[in-house]
């Protein structure tokens, strides 16, 4: 595939350049490109110029593929096994290095504040970039998992609108859960 350049225009009228192969990581962009409706610049009224470079960075890294490191790790190795029954260890090792490198990249890439996480989730959803959506949503979920309701509220700046009585009742229930989950 040639490296045709595509131009994306953010909501605040700034234009960014991206390779066509990279742009194909987005289902939405892919459909526009394949649909032949490409008219110079693709306007993205739901993505601001703060967040678009971040999205492009992800697309560049992932080019054609569509998954996160986990998917590649699983899918990649399985595929090798299917196609080459006697696949060589060298190939396997290289694959592992690639996955490790990608994981490291993801770690660095995902180091941002909550506002960016939020905007990135919306952008990934809007542009149908499955890998990026999985990555960001998993990060949001990790901020909930294993936390107490108070910690979750703090993490997401959630204000409780429960009455003191309701709160009290919930504390009781939570204690019950703790008892139950202690056995899990």
């Amino acid at each position: 595939m040639s490296s045709t350049k595509i131009f994306l225009k953010s909501s605040d009228d700034k234009t960014f350049e991206i390779d066509e192969t990279a742009a194909r990581a987005s289902e939405t962009l892919k459909n526009i490109i394949d649909g032949g409706c490409l008219d110079g610049v693709i306007p993205l009224p739901n993505v601001s110029s703060n967040i678009l470079p971040k999205v492009i960075e992800y697309c560049k890294k992932h080019g054609g593929d569509n998954g996160s490191s986990k998917k590649i790790a699983n899918g990649g190795v399985d595929k090798d096994k299917e196609i080459l029954p006697d696949y060589d260890e060298e190939e396997d090792k290289r694959e592992k290095v690639r996955v490790d490198e990608l994981k490291k990249w993801e770690e660095e890439y995902m180091d941002f504040d909550q506002q960016v996480l939020y905007d990135l989730m919306l952008a990934a959803n809007y542009l149908h970039i499955k890998g990026l959506l999985d990555l960001t949503v998993e990060k949001a979920a990790s901020m909930i998992r294993g936390r107490t309701p108070d910690q979750i509220r703090e993490n997401f700046n959630i204000n409780s609108d429960f009455t003191p009585e309701e709160e009290e009742e919930m504390i009781l229930i939570e204690d019950e859960w703790d008892d139950e989950w202690a056995f899990d």
Partner: peptide, 24 residues
């Protein structure tokens, strides 16, 4: 997106999330 995020959660986490406020 919310539904997607919730699918990453286990049972205790879903319950605890539901205890943060009424919209959650």
């Amino acid at each position: 997106i919310t539904t997607h995020a919730l699918s990453y959660l286990d049972y205790p986490s879903l319950c605890r999330l539901s205890m943060t406020n009424s919209s959650m």
